[in-house]
């Protein structure tokens, strides 16, 4: 029983971490319309920052702050390339930047032991509780941002640059700030990821992870924090829950494993077909000017 509770705690922790990554992406995509196809890079860089800082003997809490700062800085650098680039164009550009960073971590053995990755040997007390509380805090912050004047402007930017420009808003600055906040949250998630697994390697930053985070946001309902969290839980249940399903069916494991993914793919597609705006869609507000 104790072990089952342990598994529950693990699942809650990992879901919270990915909820943070998904909410960070939602701030960029759902609120500001920035199609970031390189989202996983925030997690990877955050995790590596924690690993490198921890191995240098820095206090665990300071490691977390360093991770957030490094990832926020990366967000700023990435935002400098946005300019007036169209959605998918910047999407593939951000993916390219993420992959370039991953390839540096993969190939430079002096930096972080290359493909072998780094072990993270520190822990913090009440780790899972810290993650859950941080997630709630992130939800709160993002809710405040959403309702703030800043949130209104970035949602305006989502619908196109012209109107905010006409209102005299510095669109690029808003995008930069959005990416910095998104990066910091992603870095926080990455730092927790490294602490959870005690390990980080370039394989944790493969593009497939970005697309899974994207699926969490879109399946849940972009532009709605509750929806994004629901989407994260849904995808997490798809991936973990389907492992239990495989015990019920008695066929060869080599065939069952791909069939599990067929099911996952069909369910993602099914949600999109029958709930195109996600499980819990964004509530549109009407502002009277």
């Amino acid at each position: 029983m104790e072990q089952l509770i342990g598994f529950g705690i693990y699942l809650v922790t990992v879901t919270c971490i990915f909820a943070m990554l998904a909410m960070s992406l939602d701030l960029q995509v759902g609120a500001c319309g920035l199609m970031n196809f390189g989202q996983v890079v925030f997690m990877m860089v955050g995790a590596y920052a924690t690993a490198i800082a921890a191995n240098a003997g820095i206090n665990p809490y300071a490691c977390i702050v360093i991770s957030m700062a490094v990832a926020a800085l990366l967000g700023v650098v990435m935002s400098l390339t946005v300019k007036n680039m169209g959605g998918t164009y910047w999407g593939i550009l951000s993916l390219s930047m993420a992959e370039l960073i991953r390839l540096v971590f993969l190939n430079e053995r002096w930096l972080a032991d290359g493909a072998n990755g780094l072990s993270v040997l520190i822990t913090i007390p009440y780790f899972s509780l810290t993650v859950v509380v941080s997630t709630l805090f992130v939800i709160l912050i993002l809710r405040v941002i959403w309702l703030s004047p800043f949130g209104r402007v970035i949602r305006m930017i989502r619908e196109g640059d012209r109107l905010p420009l006409a209102l005299g808003k510095n669109v690029l600055l808003f995008k930069l700030e959005t990416m910095a906040i998104g990066g910091a949250i992603g870095g926080l998630g990455g730092s927790f990821y490294a602490l959870l697994n005690s390990y980080i390697s370039p394989d944790d930053g493969l593009p497939i992870e970005t697309f899974i985070i994207w699926a969490m946001v879109v399946v849940g309902g972009r532009g709605n924090l509750l929806g994004v969290v629901a989407g994260t839980v849904f995808i997490q249940i798809l991936f973990v829950g389907s492992r239990f399903l495989t015990h019920i069916v008695d066929i060869d494991a080599g065939v069952l494993a791909p069939l599990r993914f067929v099911l996952i793919g069909l369910l993602i597609m099914g949600v999109m077909m029958f709930r195109p705006q996600g499980l819990i869609p964004e509530r549109k507000r009407v502002y009277r000017i």
Binding site: W214, A215, V219, G265, L266, I268, M269, G270, M272, M273
Partner: peptide
């Protein structure tokens, strides 16, 4: 995202 599910 639907096409992603289809691809999988």
């Amino acid at each position: 995202i639907a096409s992603l599910g289809l691809a999988i």
